[in-house]
């Protein structure tokens, strides 16, 4: 099973400040553990929202809203993609991450074909995967 772990932004991440040497060290050690356990498939940090933008869709209108965005806790500052055998394993790994101060880290399972269950006929399943594959190939 594949999971995405979403790390929220903070005033510091939004200000483009690097974390303390101590936290950076703890995070490096944690990442190393994930890699040495064969769990981590990918992981990236994101630039502050001041470098980002939003597009609002309304009827035919498209409005571009430049960053920064205000609600820091609704902002994603980074993510991991993990391969785990179960939701419990992913949670067990997440519990070991060096976060503190009331921050909440979100764990989400990434859709794979089998998750659609009986509703998806073999033909639909195939068509669906083909579409998603084409989208991925164009990225």
């Amino acid at each position: 099973m594949r999971f995405m772990v979403l790390v929220p932004g903070s005033p510091e991440s939004e200000a483009g400040e690097m974390p303390s040497t101590e936290l950076l060290g703890a995070m490096t050690k944690y990442n190393e553990e994930l890699v040495k356990a064969g769990v981590m498939l990918a992981g990236e940090g994101l630039h502050p929202t001041s470098k980002g933008a939003k597009v609002r869709f309304n009827g035919g209108a498209r409005t571009v809203i430049d960053g920064p965005f205000t609600e820091a806790k609704e902002i994603v500052a980074g993510y991991w993609v993990w391969e785990c055998a179960s939701r419990e394993e992913a949670l067990e790994w997440l519990k070991r991450a060096p976060f503190d101060g009331g921050v909440e880290i979100e764990l989400r399972q990434i859709f794979e074909a089998d998750d659609f269950g009986e509703q998806l006929t073999p033909e639909l399943r195939e068509a669906n995967e083909r579409l998603r594959g084409q989208a991925a190939a164009k990225q």
Binding site: L41, P122, E123, E126, G133, Q134
Partner: peptide
């Protein structure tokens, strides 16, 4: 892997696989 087997569990060989269904994260890795 997921392009390697058809909807009814039958093998799909490389030449017949729908390459759009390959797992691009694993390809990059």
């Amino acid at each position: 892997l997921r392009a390697r087997v058809g909807p009814r569990g039958e093998p799909v060989l490389l030449g017949d696989q729908d390459r759009a269904r390959w797992d691009h994260l694993l390809v990059q890795r």
